[in-house]
Simulated assay, not measured.
Amino acid sequence: MSEAQGFLDQRAGLFGRKAAVIGGGGGIGAGITLALAEAGVDVAICDIDQDQMAVTVAEAKGHGREVLSALVDATDPAALDSFYDEVTQGFGNLDIVVNVVGGTFRTSFMEMDRDAIARDIQRNYGYVVQSVQRAVQLIRAGGRGGSIINFTTIEAHRGAASFSVYAGAKAATTNFTRSMAVELGKEGIRLNCIAPDTTPSNGNNSAMPPEIAASFANLSPETMGKGMAMYIPIGSPPPIAALANAVLFLASDLAAFVSGITMHVDGGTMAAAGFLDWPYGDGFVPVALSGTLPYIFPENA
């Protein structure tokens, strides 16, 4: 370990802490679980994908940490309570909780039935409220404060047509997080959000209708890359590791006075607010100009 690494580890103070990652078995959640374990954190995870979770548990144990796991649908209130009961028995207290679970699908609001609306609200807001309530009890049991990190989305901060209920539920999670940061601040319990945009995850891929997902599959990586470079100021989607790094920061003592914020880990898309880097010399503008328009609408050129 280099001096720089030792200095940062000491300042972060993560080694020996205990975390729960809700949805920590695969994808983004697995990346977070493994980053915490590598930082010296004991981890409890739940997920609906048993196979992926088994792989993640084995890798986390490979870092020498204690790992608890449970096959649980976090959107089921009874199942989520049972997971927290297991964590209480196994760990006794927590320092860090990360609520990763979420998801949606692209559709017009008027085509959603009430069951689909209720599911979108529960998996993007409802379970978070329950998880935070149980998490606070376990953080209080540790007597040294702690960090709760809720995953929201860029869609909570813009008008997301065809993802309206999802966007509304994530906005509720965002403001709930801010409110709880104020309510629990004097106890040393910090709450923050991470708002990703496009990330390489199964959840994002499954949000698209099958026909759109299939059409993406027919595009070359070079073409997809050029599209992302137009949309994302940094030029490419943030990898899962970037989201895990944000969790490590917010969970650590490096962020000891950071509470109630939303950290946008999106490569700059929130900052761009609709400015795209159009090709053919148009550059960063909200709407294509004379360089690009003839290629989009050749019949009107």
Rank of each mutant, 00 (worst) to 15 (best):
Q5D: 12
L8Q: 10
Q10H: 09
R11H: 07
V21K: 01
G23E: 01
G24N: 00
A37P: 00
E38D: 15
I45S: 03
I48L: 14
Q52V: 14
A54I: 09
T56P: 01
E66G: 03
V67P: 00
D81G: 11
D85Y: 09
F91H: 01
N93T: 12
N93P: 07
V98T: 01
V98N: 00
V100D: 00
G102F: 00
G102S: 04
G103Y: 12
M112V: 08
R119S: 10
D120A: 12
Y127C: 05
Q130H: 15
S131K: 01
Q137P: 04
Q137L: 12
Q137Y: 04
I139T: 03
R144T: 15
R144M: 11
I149C: 01
A156R: 02
G159C: 08
A160T: 02
G168C: 12
A171Q: 10
T174Y: 06
E183C: 07
N192M: 08
I194F: 08
P196Y: 12
T199G: 03
N202S: 14
N205T: 15
A213L: 14
M224Q: 15
G227R: 13
M228T: 06
A229M: 10
S236C: 09
L243D: 02
A246L: 06
A246G: 15
V258W: 05
I261P: 02
I261F: 06
G268R: 03
A271H: 02
P279F: 01
V285H: 11
P286N: 15
N300K: 15
